[in-house]
């Protein structure tokens, strides 16, 4: 009963299922173990971003710079390996995401400006940093060490999807069961009530931005590891996918509502869609168009759902 009601509130699960069935029937290569593991891997990359972004949006903010952070961290992890070794390079890459998250969070809280603007500017600035570091070229890994990491298995899943799944569970737990998580909902629900109640609003907001930056950096490292190379334009438009996934997953853009389970489902549904379109030989030119339409559709959905819940009150 509870789960039925959950599905009604989160139609994205049904969407995912529908797409799954549709592509299974219409294409012969979709429903194969190889392809499905491919889908899982594809969704893991955007999934890492969306997972980090969900708490930020629940607290009533947004981070549009995540795609650029992917570019920067992927370049750093490849480029730094020669000088300071693999572990050091990974640490620097993750550190960059953490710092940029901190920077965004502080700018939003200290300046009291919409996070849209701050992170939109951050997006272009971070991309600039990535180009500044790597130049206009692509970097290649000096050896297979990084790539080998991605081949590690935890049970049947490889490392990157495993990190994604773990992150989903951890973040869900964090939002439900920790003081930070509950305060995140409170801030998104009513910032003034939270301030009045003495919640250290800025601290929680900044923490969420830091987590988001870190997850973006993990995504960048994962991407670089998988391809054994990096260019500063990696992760372009990923922020769009991530926002689409979060909103489609039922998290309210205004904040206060949402969860990781919905985000997970949406990430999965989008990956199935993308993969399925590939299978149907839809030209890659159309992908940004479909993405943009999906974003607008998610936005309309967000409005409708919230209007519905408002009249229900």
């Amino acid at each position: 009963m509870e789960s039925v009601r959950y599905l009604a509130r989160n139609p994205v699960w049904l969407l995912g299922l529908g797409l799954f069935i549709f592509f299974s029937v219409t294409t012969s290569h979709f429903l194969t173990a190889y392809n499905l593991s491919n889908v899982l891997f594809q969704c893991a990359l955007v999934g890492l971003l969306a997972t980090g972004l969900t708490p930020v949006i629940i607290s009533g903010n947004i981070d549009l710079s995540v795609g650029a952070v992917v570019g920067l961290s992927s370049c750093l992890v490849i480029g730094m390996q020669e000088q300071i070794g693999l572990a050091g390079a990974i640490a620097v890459a993750l550190g960059s995401g953490l710092c940029l998250g901190l920077l965004n969070g502080l700018a939003v809280e200290r300046l009291g400006v919409s996070s849209f603007i701050i992170t939109l500017a951050g997006m272009i600035g971070t991309r600039g940093l990535a180009f500044l570091y790597a130049g206009d070229t692509s970097l290649s890994a000096i050896d297979e060490q990084l790539y080998d990491l991605t081949m590690l298995h935890v049970g049947p899943v490889t490392l990157i999807p495993f990190i994604f799944l773990t992150a989903v569970l951890c973040f869900q737990w964090m939002l439900r069961r920790t003081v930070h998580g509950r305060n995140t909902y409170a801030i998104g629900g009513s910032r003034s009530a939270s301030t009045n109640a003495g919640i250290p609003v800025s601290r929680h907001v900044v923490i969420n931005f830091i987590i988001c930056g870190l997850m973006a950096a993990i995504c960048g490292v994962a991407m670089a590891a998988n391809l054994g190379a990096a260019t500063p334009s990696y992760g372009k438009d990923y922020e769009l996918w991530a926002v689409i996934a979060v909103v489609l997953g039922g998290t309210r853009l205004r904040g206060g509502k949402g969860d990781l389970i919905g985000t997970f489902a949406a990430v999965l549904a989008l990956a199935i869609l993308r993969n399925g379109l590939n299978m149907l030989h839809v030209a890659p030119f159309y992908i940004p168009g479909i993405m943009g339409l999906a974003l607008i559709a998610a936005l309309v959905l967000d409005r409708q759902l919230n209007r519905a819940s408002k009249t229900a009150e």
């Binding site: 853009l253 168009g289 993405m291």
Partner: peptide
């Protein structure tokens, strides 16, 4: 999108940005 459907202008035009990019791509075939 913004005035009639009352969508958040930043996200809505961000989506349109992507759509137009696709149209340009399709038009030129890259």
């Amino acid at each position: 999108l913004v005035a009639i459907l009352r969508l958040n202008s930043l996200i809505a035009t961000l989506g349109m940005l992507s759509v137009l990019q696709a149209v340009a791509l399709v038009w030129t075939s890259g």
